[in-house]
Simulated scan of single mutants.
Amino acid sequence: MRTIISALLALLALAMTAAGLASTWVDENFVQESGFVALAAPLADDAGFQAELSDALVEEVTGSVGLPEQLDAVVEPLIRDAAGAVTRSAAYPATWTETLELSHALTFARAPDPSEPAPAILVLDLGPVVHLVTDSVGGGLGLEIPVPSDTTVGIGSIERGGLLSGIADVVQPWRLYLVAAAVLALLAVVIARRRGTTLALLGLGVAGIGLLGLLARHWVPSLAGQTPGTNAIADVFLTGLATRAGADIASASLPVIVGGLVALVVGLVLQVAFGPRRRA
Rank of each mutant, 00 (worst) to 15 (best):
L187I: 07
G229L: 08
G210H: 09
G225M: 08
V179A: 14
A207T: 06
H218K: 04
G205C: 02
G229E: 12
H218R: 07
V220A: 04
L201T: 10
F237N: 04
G203R: 12
G210T: 10
V189E: 13
G246F: 03
L238G: 07
R244T: 04
L199C: 14
G210V: 06
T239I: 05
A192V: 08
A216H: 05
Q172L: 01
A207K: 04
V236H: 08
L187E: 06
S253T: 10
L176D: 06
T243Y: 08
A247S: 10
T243V: 13
L178F: 00
G208W: 07
A207E: 06
Q226E: 10
L184N: 03
G240P: 13
A188R: 10
T230H: 12
G246Q: 04
A242K: 00
G205Y: 03
L211P: 06
R193C: 03
G229H: 06
V206M: 04
R244E: 13
T230V: 10
V189G: 13
A224H: 03
A180T: 08
L215E: 09
S222K: 14
N231P: 14
L223F: 04
L223N: 01
A180V: 08
R175Q: 02
R217P: 00
V189Q: 14
L212C: 10
V183Y: 05
V258Q: 13
A181R: 02
D248C: 02
L211T: 14
R217L: 02
D235S: 15
G229Q: 09
H218I: 08
G240E: 12
